[in-house]
Amino acid sequence: MNAVFYISAGVAVLATVMVIVAKNAIHGLLSLLVSLLAVSLIFYVMGAPFIAALEIIIYGGAIMVLFIFVVMLLNLGPAMVDQERQWLPARIWIGPGILALVLVVEMGYVIVRRPNAGISGSVVTPQEVGLALFGLYLLGVELASMLLLVGLVGAYYLGQRRIPPEKGPVAQRGRLP
């Protein structure tokens, strides 16, 4: 079990790094998918099979498909790869890298300062999750449903094409629709 965790962790980190350095959007998305699968495996190992399944279905399925659809809709060609190369010179990584390093050191310090403990990986069944979800966290579920509704309305509103893109007045900046 441990080996699965370590291997998955390594894959997850590696794949995630590949996402953020990817030049091509589809490549990035595929790496993200790999990362999500690895994280899902970690969930499974930690005794959360339900979440592992949700991770694959929602993240790996629905959300990734959405991303891919958008990439297709935008119809980004090879020009974008060149553009990315131009946008990402080596030096741009320095500042955020240092910031991230400081942050991760701080977080690591916070984590390791606490006493360590083992995770046995005993399974928390979907039944227990469901009971907690619709018992103690019912209000949270309601709020989440509200949020999804807002997201739905917002996406619908933003998605309608009131101004055809070809007429999109890039020249008339300062007057957003």
């Binding site: 979440i51 929602i58 993240y59 959405l66 907690a132 997201g151 996406a155 933003l158």
Partner: peptide, 23 residues
């Protein structure tokens, strides 16, 4: 199970965020 409940809520946030964000 509480941790997993939180993940489910995070999932909904992520879904809503990505829907609006991609639009």
């Amino acid at each position: 199970a509480d941790g997993q409940v939180m993940v489910i809520i995070i999932l909904t946030v992520a879904a809503a965020e990505v829907a609006v964000g991609l639009a």
